[in-house]
Design a binder for these strands. Structure first.
Lengths: 236, 236
DNA sequence: GCAAAAGTGTTACACGTACACCCATGC
DNA sequence: GCATGGGTGTACGTGTAACACTTTTGC
């Protein structure tokens, strides 16, 4: 394939297994406070190695799908969900990730909306965990979850991912709740609202959210495209 | 390997080829202005597909090396250089990257110091190009180079990569030249110097660079660690 | 009317930018 | 002495943080 001075004969021997895994984030109300918090779904391993430990959903890459399609597919297959945002996280290829075999995992992270997340499949072998309390996971999946969390927080602070946790219409308070949940801080509603309204990707609709207990907040819409990474770049 | 509801029998069929490629950046004086500019080494393809076109150096992943080691190795093999900085860029896995075969490329980017870059191997089949004037490359390598450039500029602006283009000791003006070359702007020497001196990772030495035409500038040293990505995290 | 959330106004401060100025060296 | 790059001082503008204040709804 590539011209290279490497020993070409080695290639056939090596051929590490290639797998795709996904860290799926959704906001769900905390059991205690009721405020939204970050959750991720994990699958129980049904064979060795790491039998009975929890692991990230994942699977092989099939021949006729792109990497991102493979991530979306195994997300749908394990949780029944359609993600609103998918981005590549990292390719993990350390030598001893799996005790039995050399595996290179290309890991994605995804966001799903809470309306969807509510009707997600949950079973004996698929369960949702609070992202900061996952316990001991199979393989190097604890490190992967940590890194995904770090990336999510980063993207939220500097990018425009927050809206993918929400539906098409949302109030400023809902966006603020997303930030507060993910970054684990409290934000000044006044300043936060002004900042959002000054970003060109946020569009003010004429609608108001009715049925609340207090003054009805205005509804907004997000009109931006997510991506700067190669998979999403071409989308105009 | 992974528990998954995917059709396990498909895996054996699929098995796309896995390759490692690297975008190697070095600063070299421009032919015209003499000011430093960004260059990258490319290798000429000696077979189909894309025979005779230039491509990124790359090769297979061998069994007993990590992804990053593979990147460093093929960097050394094509250019004879030891990189001062290596970071994973992205895993490219589109279906039609190569017309003949399904290939997933895990791409790294690297920086080498100009002292090293000066003695880099150059031959009929390995040549250095200005990063912004590479012409038409094989596969999707133009897109990859563009993305690597974007990342480098980003990391330079927000991170602390600049020092890896330089030796252990450097003057503030040298760092400024790196920024000016990569970001293609002019920066105010006064403000730039103050900013650098206020970053805790920059250490002022007692030494001065002698032999210049004018007032000898103070020499500085960088005392930070590069990384926040998984490969470099554990390094204490 | 009162509680609570939506939304506006105002001020202080940190930080980046622009630019005038002084310092030290080679020729 | 003078040209040139190294280095300091200082004023201005922009954006964020803090917080007082007004508005609008449900009960």
């Amino acid at each position: 394939m590539y011209s290279s001075s490497a020993n070409v004969s080695e290639r056939a021997v090596a051929a590490p297994t290639l797998a795709i895994s996904t860290v799926i984030f959704a906001l769900r109300p905390s059991e205690s406070s009721g405020r939204p918090t970050l959750w991720i779904p994990l699958v129980r391993r049904i064979r060795e190695p790491f039998k009975d430990l929890w692991a990230l959903p994942g699977g092989p890459l099939t021949h006729n799908e792109s990497l991102q399609d493979a991530a979306s597919r195994n997300l749908r297959e394990t949780t029944g969900l359609a993600p609103s945002y998918v981005e590549q996280l990292y390719a993990f290829g350390g030598l001893h990730r799996s005790p039995t075999q050399r595996v290179v995992s290309i890991v994605y992270w995804a966001l799903v909306q809470p309306t969807e997340a509510a009707l997600a499949d949950e079973s004996e072998n698929v369960k949702w965990f609070r992202a900061d309390k996952v316990g001991e996971l199979a393989f190097d999946h604890n490190a992967i979850v940590d890194y995904a969390l770090w990336r999510l927080r980063n993207k939220l602070a500097y990018g425009s991912v927050a809206y993918h946790f929400l539906g098409e219409y949302f109030t400023l308070a809902e966006v603020r709740e997303v930030y507060e949940a993910v970054l684990d801080t409290r934000l000044d509603p006044a300043n936060f609202g002004r900042q959002l309204k000054s970003t060109p990707e946020i569009e003010e609709t004429g609608e108001y959210l009715q049925g609340g207990k207090h003054r009805p907040p205005r509804l907004y819409r997000f009109t931006g495209r997510p991506g700067l990474d190669p998979d999403n770049r071409s989308t105009p």
